[in-house]
Design a protein around this nucleic acid. Structure first.
Lengths: 327, 327
DNA sequence: CAATGTCCTGATAGCGCTATCATATATTTC
DNA sequence: GAAATATATGATAGCGCTATCAGGACATTG
């Protein structure tokens, strides 16, 4: 920067201003400086800038798993908003471990991120404490947080699962099975199960424990689950899968066995992947506002960082049931 | 930090050493300092550290699209390696735009990242120049770069496409169609097409322009393409799709129309998604070492950052054809 | 027991930028 | 046209840490 200043015959301060507050520099000077910057190939050191100004242009984002395409949509939404705002996204993967999440939060705070986005709503006590003390704004998502640290943008897994269950009942299915991933370390799965249970309860049906099963992730699990439920002593006529991969695995298995969907068994699931619009038969699912969550989350966070908003916002973006051939 | 130093009755320098070079501090002192750090809830300012030491623990990663699950696998591989190494990943999305990519590279260099990973191999001249001048190590991936900036870890799209085409010919298919995304701004698509052409050439078959078509992304495009190719005046008996989504869309369309796969038309594609192991029929595909690319890329990069390696490595991780029911 | 080496700790300077206030010049106002 | 205000630039200090070297305490050697 001193180099540039010398070449352009101004003070370093003016160079700094040209980069951050161009309006405050006379046009002639500004152009001369910009020209010089280009000529010497100067790349400003944002680290030094952050240190001096006590601000950074980095937002930290923690997801349980980068690979999971569900998060990919939300990340994309966030990235789209941030790209136009000059902020950078620092993404880390907690591997579904709360302890790792805590370590990552600590690392992010060490980087003096301007904001943090967390794709889950349960955290260690120390993690909450770290964030609170730092005063960095936080968005939680993935579910409506029961006790939000700060701001939340999501839909309600409980309500979504409940609605879909009631919807299936309303379409005349009598024996609705429910398949989800293990509850352990997965608050979303837990909420979805609760929603299913609540729906059964409000229908006055005894939730049969044999109808709600928990499985490992993967296509194969969905396949096994549907076979198990259909061939049980009390066969189901519909299965509600709490995850898309499970449902797809189940559907393929039905194809292999020649079971009609929905004639033999109806299939519905969370998360309206585009694939589900094209698969044969197309699958009834819950459209979750994934990308919107990413967008709104980023926007609210930016508003807070810029001091536009003060309040702790909790935004429920809802969901939608999309009826298709499979039910 | 001064706070901690005062409380623990040592100099700030000792606190700094406890965090970065614990061995160089007497055990007694170290424990006292660590205890104090915990007590006052001190979070070291890594920004200041980076500025002072002229090192950072951030790796920049640019992908054309975060949403695309293909990149997700590679990112996961990278993240897995970096997590255990104390580095953070800063991810940005160029939206397939070379100009945006250049801007992001500049932003990353401003952040003084220790390394950069690029998921494509064509860049603007200024981008190359920026990187070269900065001396920051770079990994390019997504294809074997023709003129690598620095290091490359990938497989060859050309060879992969060629192999699969020859493989299909070898299985007896006479009329092999090729469907890919538009060549424009997509060097991978271009290489794949070249590979297909080269195979046709080596088979002594005139590559019929009517058999190689370019389409927009999406399931629907694949569906349209397969219909077009099968119902043409010179119907194909096999179609090789350069992208998985296209192939899946095509397969579903065949299911809808009751066209037997592979009896009426065989289908093969790039990229061995897990879905393709379960879909009916399972699909012959090219297994690309996505995750390995991420892992090796990260490892090579770290070696360079740590000064273990000096040489410009070009790593070809190859590919594999997986025979399944669809051909 | 002086000389040498080893280990641990501290003092000092400075990384490259920005906040802040001061100064110089141009513009407006009555 | 003098005073008040606005605009443009610069000088200075310091953000929170680490590199570097200096020095004190202690052990080792001949």
């Amino acid at each position: 920067m001193y180099d540039v200043a010398r070449h352009a015959k101004v003070s370093p301060m003016t160079v700094s201003r040209v980069l951050r507050e161009p309006d405050k520099v006379a046009e002639k000077t500004r152009n001369r400086v910009l020209e010089t910057i280009r000529k010497v190939g100067y790349v400003p050191n944002l680290i030094a800038g952050s240190l001096a100004s006590n601000r950074s242009n980095v937002i930290g984002l923690i997801v349980p798993s980068i690979k999971n395409s569900l998060f990919a949509d939300t990340i994309q939404g966030t990235a789209d908003v941030l790209r136009t705002s000059g902020f950078q996204l620092m993404i880390a993967d907690s591997g579904h471990s709360l302890a790792d999440e805590e370590a990552l939060i600590s690392a992010f705070l060490g980087q003096r991120v301007s904001g943090i986005i967390l794709h889950n709503t349960t955290h260690t006590e120390r993690a909450r404490e770290l964030i609170r003390r730092s005063g960095v704004p936080v968005i939680e998502t993935g579910d409506l947080a029961r006790k939000p640290i700060d701001m939340t943008v999501s839909y309600s897994n409980f309500e979504a699962a409940k609605s879909m269950t009631l919807y299936l009942a309303n379409r005349g299915y009598r024996n609705i099975g429910f398949v989800s991933l293990s509850d352990r370390d997965n608050d979303r799965a837990r909420e979805r199960r609760r929603g299913y249970m609540a729906a059964m309860d409000s229908l006055g049906r005894m939730p049969d424990p044999a109808l709600t099963i928990q499985v490992a992730p993967g296509f194969a699990s969905g396949a096994e689950a549907v076979v198990h439920l259909v061939e049980s002593s009390k066969p189901v006529d519909a299965v509600f899968f709490a995850g898309d991969v499970l449902a797809i695995g189940a559907l393929f298995e039905c194809q292999r066995r020649g079971w009609g969907v929905p004639s033999r068994v109806a299939i519905a699931c969370f998360d309206d992947l585009e694939l589900l619009h094209h698969i044969v038969p197309t699958v009834t699912s819950l459209r979750l506002p994934r990308r919107e969550i990413g967008r709104y989350g980023a926007e609210i966070l930016l508003d807070r960082i810029r001091g536009v908003t003060k309040r702790n916002i909790v935004l429920d973006l809802g969901f939608e049931i999309v009826q298709r051939e499979s039910t």
